[in-house]
Design a binder for these strands. Structure first.
Lengths: 130, 130
DNA sequence: ACTTGACCTTCCCATTACTGGAAGCTCCAT
DNA sequence: ATGGAGCTTCCAGTAATGGGAAGGTCAAGT
């Protein structure tokens, strides 16, 4: 398979696949006589794995760790679980931060008339600490 | 005031203040005879405004728009409200995405024994589409 | 045989919002 | 006068791509 095909099947842009190779996340692909990257089923599975892990918000660093664990037949599942749990905690932190922002903003938005008049509690609040 | 002092009072690192100047978010600061940046109360208020807007998750682009609205005595509050509402929608989208990730991950984590044995539903799921 | 167009290659730059560090100047206190 | 804190500029790096140029390759259509 050429890069465009694994791109279609994995859902990763060709640019991204080359990037993953350049940073060492995946091993350099084989090449055809013409210099085109050549992928086999195994490579495709790896790319799909990466795509799914990324879609769950794992960083490239974390994906790298997951790939190693995936390729280690004897790793303890506790290691994977630990990694995943830390990631969920990270997600929780982000959600909490976003929701705190939203709360503040929603309050301000409710107080703002939103008409032609210039007076605006949103700007007033940003201008003055509370 | 020199940059270190407005930094302390605004909560923005000196690096960041210089960066904001370099990208044109704030006007170039005045200078002392020695070439140090000099700020007045007004500048400080602007920096505080920026800091608060950033802490609510507004992008620099949005902060720039907010600053213009703030400096426009005659703008309609509707414009500000609109900008804020769109930002809240953006936050909602991010929260939804994060929570969807979290849900998937939590399910997988629950299914994983997390002991010394290698079998791990988390990796299995990442490896096989479902 | 030739050309077109879709792929492929590498390379470099841009993005967002900073952060770190080096080399060097200034100011203030001892 | 010497030391250290704070200031200056400039360069480079971060995460994870995306855009686009310049050029090679391949299969199909004329």
């Amino acid at each position: 398979m050429k890069i465009g095909q694994v791109s279609d099947k994995s859902g990763l842009p060709t640019k991204t696949i080359r990037y993953y190779e350049s940073i060492g996340l995946i091993a350099p692909a084989g090449r055809t006589a013409a210099g085109y990257r050549a992928y086999d089923k195994n490579d495709l599975e790896t790319l799909k794995f990466i795509q799914r892990a990324r879609s769950l918000g794992f960083s490239i660093q974390e994906v790298s760790a997951l790939l190693m664990l995936w390729n280690d037949r004897n790793r303890a599942s506790a290691q994977v679980k630990e990694l995943a749990k830390r990631h969920v905690e990270e997600i929780d932190r982000k959600v909490a931060e976003l929701q705190s922002m939203k709360e503040t903003l929603s309050t301000l938005i409710d107080k703002c008339h939103g008409d032609d008049r210039p007076n605006c509690p949103i700007l007033n609040d940003l201008a003055n600490a509370r």
